[in-house]
Design a protein around this nucleic acid. Structure first.
Lengths: 325, 325
DNA sequence: ATGAAAGCGCTAACAC
DNA sequence: GTGTTAGCGCTTTCAT
């Protein structure tokens, strides 16, 4: 791989001259610039960004840690973040923690060592204390760590209320919530609080099913949903904590010959693009994923630029009624 | 951020000594090692990987370029690649080209500049000549560039044949294929060739609908599928070039009150995890995505280690019959 | 067993 | 306008 030195030698100038044309800094005669540019072309020269980063202490990279990109919510989030970052000349280093504490911590250190300029955290297995060591601009998704670390989330409680009240408004008498893990310190747990509060307030029978410890183990979703129906055959409304879970509910209803929305109504959460192509198209609480992504990056960039930021960033979401209710 | 110098100063030794404990190389007295380790702990020291990479010319990073992570096939692929890479101490730099030639090229150069050790290309908008300039270990998905660049794909022709023959075996008399763009130089276009060949061979009426130029613009899928049905109301079998398209077909059938599989049968392609939770669960040609991901990385790592590789890597896929046929 | 020094590729004073 | 030089943080001979 050609270096700046090779170019300099070839043209017969000093490396600093080459560096000047590379950075468009200082004066150089047009003819020299021409020659240098030509030499770069010929040697297929590519400035070594690693060396540049070492010197500048600026990598133009940010880190994104999520549980797994293989979940539509996160892949959409990731996609928006990448796009927006690209517009602002940032590259994103994607890290999938797989909900593994070791891996999350390891990636956190890796990102630091890699001199990223900031980190967006969407995975939450590590403890609060660890964050103090990071000492890098940070933004969190769905988790409030401290009043020093801004977070963005949608209004989970309001979303849960919207969903539950909608089920009741549609006449459901016996409702269930099926949710991923409630054991992680995430704001999304408030969807569950809202569900319980609303059901209690209306004096409606209700139950909660926690599918699994981590929320992303869809292999056994159908099994547990079947169990729920076996136990309570007259459940007529379900609030799923994610559209992915909702999809499994629709599938299970299909397999059990329960008609949606006639026998049971279901409302999802997230508003991922797949929600509108499900059969039937899913009623769901849609989060403003794109805005959330861009807001997170804005907050990160502000910190990178030493600008003040707001720590609490809760975006509204919207119930979209389709055909499962 | 603490550097190796800070540690050295604090302990009162030379940086090379610190470097030694960092790399477990050479001899150092146990007591010194202890002290140094303690100092690192106290200063929360993190070796600067950028500096290390500059020296070693080894980044432990590979690049992955795909059209968009916001497509289940690629997010699953990406997930498997990341996992497998992690097991082999490689990090992956994810680049979404969005099918944009500029962006793909820009990312290609970025990856080189970033000193990645190799690149896996799943996006294919740039021309063959560009590849000669890359001069880095490369593996391609679904595209044969040259006999110097290994590629991995599933057996697209066989897959297309499997799907089409299955439709015919199920008694379809009037079949359509709905496919993404055929305009990109991808091996997956062979699914289409197989479809036509099989239909012709059996003398069955058939038509092909190309949804859009790039294959990932699902906004208007329902519209074009409706048009197809309006034009040919008696189509009774559809082969979709991806499970995502198949999902849109199922949805559109639902909206048009066409029963699947009674009125129209549909078979998808990919075997993404969502295929089994669709309603009805989708009959589809499943690609061995995980094996493909790991094979791609194996081929890349072999090149990195200067080992010989096989250039043609076509994996078999399997028709899984579920309830849409 | 530890230190001194050179160098990875690049940039930015500072000379001339 | 262009060259010289020091240095970014780290590793690795080569001394001692």
């Amino acid at each position: 791989m050609a270096t700046i030195k090779d170019i300099a030698n070839k043209v017969g100038v000093n490396v600093s001259t080459v560096s000047r044309v590379l950075n468009n800094r200082g004066y150089i005669s047009d003819s020299l610039r021409e020659n240098i540019l030509k030499a770069m072309e010929e040697l297929n020269y590519q400035p070594n960004e690693v060396a540049r980063t070492l010197f500048r202490k600026k990598s133009n990279m940010i880190g994104l840690i999520i549980p797994t990109v293989d979940h539509p919510f996160f892949s959409e989030l990731c996609n928006h973040i990448e796009n927006y970052a690209y517009q602002h000349q940032f590259k994103v280093l994607l890290c999938n923690s797989q909900h593994d504490k070791e891996k999350e911590l390891m990636y956190l250190n890796f990102l630091k060592a890699q001199q990223v300029e900031g980190i967006i955290m969407g995975s939450h297995t590590i403890d609060v204390e660890e964050f103090s060591k990071i000492d890098l601009p940070l933004v969190t998704f769905e988790r409030a760590i401290s009043d020093k670390i801004p977070f963005v989330s949608s209004d989970n409680y309001a979303g849960g209320r919207l969903a539950t009240e909608h089920l009741l408004a549609k006449g459901c008498k016996k409702i269930a919530m099926i949710t991923g893990s409630l054991g992680l310190p995430m704001l999304s747990n408030e969807r569950h609080s809202a569900f319980k509060d609303v059901a209690q307030k209306h004096g409606v029978w209700h139950t909660v099913l926690e599918t699994d410890i981590f929320g992303f183990n869809p292999e056994n979703y159908e099994g547990v949903i079947r169990q729920l129906f076996d136990l309570y055959p007259d459940i007529d409304g379900i609030f799923a904590s994610s559209d992915v879970i909702a999809a499994h509910i629709l599938k299970t209803c299909y397999m059990m010959n329960k008609s949606v929305p006639d026998d049971v109504k279901v409302v999802g959460y997230d508003g991922i693009s797949f929600s509108k192509v499900l059969v039937p198209p899913l009623t769901t609480v849609v989060q403003p994923i794109k805005q959330m992504a861009e807001l997170a990056l804005d907050l990160l960039m502000k910190q990178i630029n030493k600008e003040p930021v707001q720590y609490t960033n809760i975006l509204p979401n919207e119930l979209i009624v389709r055909q499962t209710t």
